[in-house]
């Protein structure tokens, strides 16, 4: 099948990519655009490491054909990372040791960003509900829940 051009907005900039049908957003981000903060833990929609925001909603980029998001707004971890310093959610992860191997961290940070954008003061239960599809094999989630609550406080006082 022939390739075609798909245009969308990525981290505030318009981009165009030439892709075969059914190419996933994850493949476009990692292999076409070399934005590797979005990880590839399973490509089955089972681990959450590839979570990005599409129009502000968290999506698993490994299951998302890029044609389906033509013309839409995509934000990856690169898009929320300031040139200097860290985003408050990133700072909260750093300060709370909510990272061990680090492979789940990008997806965790994006899913928590989506949560805090729509619910700035979530309960612990709401944080757990939000991250339930993201696998962390190292931390046991405690430090990640702590970081999410800390991030909410930082964002509210900012």
């Amino acid at each position: 099948m022939a390739s075609r051009i798909v245009a969308f907005n990525l981290n505030g900039r318009d981009v165009e990519v030439m892709v075969k049908p059914l190419t996933t957003l994850q493949t476009v981000l990692r292999e076409h655009l070399h934005l590797t903060a979005t990880k590839s833990g399973c490509r089955q929609g089972g681990c959450g490491t590839c979570t990005v925001l599409v129009n502000g909603e968290p999506m698993l980029s490994c299951l998302l054909p890029v044609e389906d998001i033509a013309g839409q707004q995509v934000v990856t971890l690169e898009g929320i990372t300031p040139v200097e310093g860290l985003h408050p959610i990133q700072q909260a992860f750093f300060d709370n040791y909510a990272i061990q191997c680090g492979y789940c961290s990008p997806g965790m940070i994006m899913i928590i960003k989506a949560l805090l954008d729509r619910n700035p003061n979530p309960t612990r239960q709401e944080v757990m509900d939000a991250i339930a599809g993201n696998v962390c094999r190292c931390t046991g989630y405690e430090s990640i829940l702590r970081a999410a609550e800390d991030a909410a406080r930082r964002l509210q006082s900012a």
């Binding site: 089955q44 089972g46 757990m128 094999r137 046991g140 989630y141 829940l145």
Partner: peptide, 12 residues
């Protein structure tokens, strides 16, 4: 990960 059962944050 859908077939290999690992608990999540709710089971902490």
């Amino acid at each position: 990960f859908s077939e290999y059962v690992i608990p999540g944050p709710h089971e902490l």
